[in-house]
């Protein structure tokens, strides 16, 4: 199953990056949301996939025996999902506020930090 997931990961990355490269804040945001999924699925697949057996120790056993999914990538991804969500929310609000302040949703027009025709620094001492 890994090859299929690998290609799916590639597709997710491609779309995310394509959206990133568009200049509109909204599309960049959606790209960010997809990028989070892409990375999570990447980690998940790299930890190898097993079908349908969650890493839960049966009641009468002391340790996980037999085929079960790899718990480590799951633990990594679980926190990553929540954190990427909070960052997505942050980006969303940032983009929204930028739109309100600058009245544009195009990253090309957002030139507050690096204005066009910035003055050269003083050449003296």
């Amino acid at each position: 199953m890994e090859p299929i997931l690998a290609m799916l990961v590639g597709a997710l990355f491609t779309v995310a990056i394509y959206l990133f490269l568009s200049k509109h804040v909204i599309r960049i945001l959606m790209g960010a949301a997809i990028l989070g999924n892409a990375v999570n699925l990447l980690i998940f697949t790299a930890g190898r996939v097993t079908r349908e057996v969650p890493p839960i120790i049966p009641g009468d056993a002391d340790a996980l025996t037999g085929a079960a999914a790899n718990p480590l990538p799951q633990a990594l991804i679980l926190t990553a999902i929540v954190i990427s969500f909070s960052f997505f929310a942050f980006l969303l609000v940032l983009g929204y506020r930028a739109f309100q302040e600058l009245e544009t949703d195009s990253s090309d027009d957002m030139r507050v930090a690096e204005p066009v025709g910035d003055k050269t620094p003083p050449a003296g001492y």
């Binding site: 779309v15 394509y18 490269l21 892409a38």
Partner: peptide, 20 residues
């Protein structure tokens, strides 16, 4: 943009295939 994205996404696919 699409070429950049495909290069990058394809890179991840190849990388993941190599890893697995």
């Amino acid at each position: 943009d699409m070429s950049v994205a495909i290069a990058c996404g394809g890179g991840f696919t190849l990388y993941l295939l190599a890893v697995t």
